[in-house]
């Protein structure tokens, strides 16, 4: 379990994260949603100590992360970057093997793990194993980034706009394969995005952020149907019909008609 208590982070006079607290249960998928500059990435980076909070505390399974060596902490947390962050001088296999190597796994085990992950992410090892990242397409690179983050089987996965740089078709394909990974069943995922649909698609709980604060926290339905503030309501306004339609079970026509009426009223 991850427990974040009253953390604040400022850069100069700008407060990026302002007194935020939350907890994440084991295996839970949560999404921090907000516009760029709302502090969601800063928040994410404090969880694996790429940034240190000015005040407040973060514990993982009851242990304050400040008391752990940053390297050890990070090796137990997967991290996926928006722009993949692959090592340009490492082959695909070497990129995926970085964390297992740092952990000192034996070669056999690393090789099995790398091959397995590449197959699940539809990157034939024979074809791409010895390639350099620059020889792959953007979507393939992002698949490698995901494989690298999951290679050592971390209990926690942090994802910073992982599909943000991809075109819609590639994004859908990568996301589909990602969701099908059986590794993720027991993994706690914290994902940040500005993409409302993505948040609704992947989240058990969404934290909507604005100006360094959490405006509302809840399940997608709670945010959509029980907005706690005007900001929350307006945030979803543009995509409300699509979002509401996606939350309605197939065949529930009355609910669908209600949603459509609602949508038409808004339009007026």
């Amino acid at each position: 379990m991850i427990a974040v208590t009253n953390i604040t982070k400022t850069f100069g006079s700008h407060t990026a994260v302002d007194n935020v607290s939350f907890t994440v249960k084991e295996g839970e998928n949560i999404v921090f949603l907000g516009t760029s500059g709302c502090g969601k990435t800063t928040l994410l980076k404090m969880i694996n100590r790429l940034l240190e909070p000015d005040s407040g505390e973060i514990t993982i399974d009851g242990r304050p992360i400040r008391q752990q060596r940053p390297e050890d902490l990070r090796r137990s947390i997967g991290y996926v970057f928006q722009n993949n962050g692959l090592f340009p001088h490492y082959t695909i296999e070497e990129n995926i093997a970085i964390v297992p190597r740092l952990l000192g796994w034996d070669k056999e085990k690393i090789s099995r793990r790398v091959t397995g992950l590449m197959e699940k992410l539809h990157l034939p090892p024979d074809q791409y194993g010895a390639s350099l990242p620059a020889q792959l397409s953007g979507g393939q690179q992002q698949r490698v980034g995901i494989a690298r983050a999951l290679a050592a089987g971390p209990p926690i996965l942090l994802m910073d706009e992982p599909f943000g740089a991809l075109d819609p078709i590639t994004r859908a394909a990568v996301k589909k394969d990602f969701k099908e990974l059986d590794e993720l069943k027991s993994t706690t995922i914290i994902l940040v995005t500005h993409d409302v649909q993505e948040a609704f698609e992947l989240a058990d709980r969404i934290f909507l952020m604005d100006k360094g604060r959490v405006v509302q926290e809840g399940t997608p339905d709670q945010l959509l149907f029980e907005p706690a503030a005007d900001y929350v309501r307006t945030f979803f306004e543009e995509q409300r019909f699509a979002l509401e339609a996606s939350r309605i079970a197939a065949g529930d026509y009355p609910a669908l008609i209600r949603a459509f009426d609602h949508f038409k009223n808004r339009q007026r």
């Binding site: 694996n48 790429l50 940053p70 390297e71 050890d72 902490l73 990070r74 090796r75 991290y79 970057f81 722009n83 993949n84 962050g85 692959l86 090592f87 340009p88 970085i98 964390v99 740092l102 690298r148």
Partner: peptide
């Protein structure tokens, strides 16, 4: 590339 540098740290180097 600062992204690569940050990734190296994030991997636990």
């Amino acid at each position: 590339d600062p992204g690569v540098k940050e990734a190296a740290l994030a991997m636990g180097m």
